[in-house]
């Protein structure tokens, strides 16, 4: 059970967006914005408020890679795998990160809740390819080596 403040916040979001089925996506976007992820309890809560089933809400939300139902780590690393980044070797960066952080296709967040690894289809920074963002800050022209040293630096900062 989440703290009551989560439900109050969600009520406010629904109030702002409108209590209609067609506003499901903006509502859960706002929730993700507020908490960095969509807590499953809140998706159920929103579905109930909009008078749709939880399965329907999940159907919509799970369609989009962007929505996450798990709490994210302190640092959200997004590796761009758009066409430009892909051809300029974004995959080795992703593979290096996956291995270094002990993650997998199904596991996106490290056990210590420090890092979350995601891929995005395009950051719109193709000129900087391959691009990576950490908590929104763009790191251009990345390599696996540069990436791993950045991760190391962030780890140290948190010791």
């Amino acid at each position: 059970m989440l703290d009551q403040s989560y439900y109050d916040k969600t009520d406010a979001i629904i109030q702002l967006r409108g209590k209609e089925e067609r506003f499901l996506i903006p509502i859960i976007q706002d929730i993700q914005e507020a908490y960095t992820y969509v807590p499953p309890e809140l998706l159920d809560y929103v579905a109930d408020k909009l008078n749709i089933s939880e399965a329907k809400a999940y159907s919509v939300a799970s369609f989009y890679e962007n929505f996450s139902f798990e709490a994210k780590g302190k640092y959200v690393i997004r590796v761009c795998d758009g066409t430009a980044c892909h051809v300029r070797k974004s995959m080795p960066i992703l593979e290096a990160l996956t291995e270094n952080l002990g993650l997998s296709k199904r596991k996106h967040t490290t056990d210590d809740q420090l890092f979350t690894l995601e891929t995005v289809s395009c950051l719109g920074a193709c000129g900087l390819a391959p691009a990576v963002t950490v908590n929104g800050k763009v790191y251009p022209k990345m390599t696996p080596e540069k990436m791993l040293s950045l991760v190391e630096q962030l780890r140290k900062e948190n010791e």
């Binding site: 499953p40 089933s53 399965a55 329907k56 999940y58 159907s59 799970s62 369609f63």
Partner: peptide
């Protein structure tokens, strides 16, 4: 009732209750 619906997309698409719950956890 809408206990089950599509989830995910493309080659990952599935018909399932929300959050891969089991049927007895749905309506």
């Amino acid at each position: 009732i809408n206990a089950i619906d599509f989830a995910y997309r493309g080659t990952d698409a599935l018909v399932t209750p929300a959050f891969n719950k089991t049927i007895n956890e749905t309506a």
